[in-house]
Design a protein around this nucleic acid. Sequence first.
DNA 1: GCGCTTTTGATAGCTTCTTTTCGTTAGTGA
DNA 2: TCACTAACGAAAAGAAGCTATCAAAAGCGC
Lengths: 123, 123
Amino acid sequence: MQRDTRQRKAIRRALVDAGHPLSPQELHDAASEDVPGLGIATVYRNLKALGEAGFLETVELPGEPPRYEVAGKGHHHHFHCRSCDRVFEVDGCPGNLDRITPPGFRLEDHEFVLYGRCESCAA
Amino acid sequence: MQRDTRQRKAIRRALVDAGHPLSPQELHDAASEDVPGLGIATVYRNLKALGEAGFLETVELPGEPPRYEVAGKGHHHHFHCRSCDRVFEVDGCPGNLDRITPPGFRLEDHEFVLYGRCESCAA
DNA sequence: GCGCTTTTGATAGCTTCTTTTCGTTAGTGA
DNA sequence: TCACTAACGAAAAGAAGCTATCAAAAGCGC
């Protein structure tokens, strides 16, 4: 059966506390504060398990390895800070996508990434 | 000095003829019709050279290796067909991006990807 | 055509990210 | 508490994509 280990708890908590998508490495760094000595393999194992359990979702950004965030947040997009390389959530959606979809194409979905400086890096 | 080899010509032509972003592998396949036996290393070498020459631009899509398209097309986005995995150009831009940028964040740029079925796959 | 030098093709190597292996540790129900 | 076995950490292995190496081929100026 599934066990609730210190490591798994720390990984789950780190994802929730961050409030924005984390890379496996960022997640490892964050969860290591709770569980010193945490192995990176454990992070990957739990990312897989938590993904299959529907607890988290994968966030893919252009030219970047995947990041992960807690699932069930509803439709949103992301802001990628070019300075600190962190990714933030963005509510809202530009809309008007059918307008720019080429004729004959069937639009099913969309992804959308803003680039710039986050609040702390812009200051 | 820079030599105009059969291989380089074929690679340039394949990019222009395609009219949409190509992965190194797609480019290799296309240019191989002109130059049988074309090596994949030659494709990568020329992608690098043509990039530095300003002839092409890199197109990064979420969770995908980079693709390449001829430069100087002006601002546009891309449509990724989930069926044939090809990427097409999309003119126009949704706009209203400042509206959804979080307060304090400085927006510099944006990327935008549509997903669905292309014209031939939707039929 | 000649010779110089860039470019090529094949293949090995490298980098980055992820998964597997394996012996050890530690949840969990009885 | 005990026993069972899921989960762990470390390190090796794997996968994918790109780059370097090197001998051979082929542009290009003369």
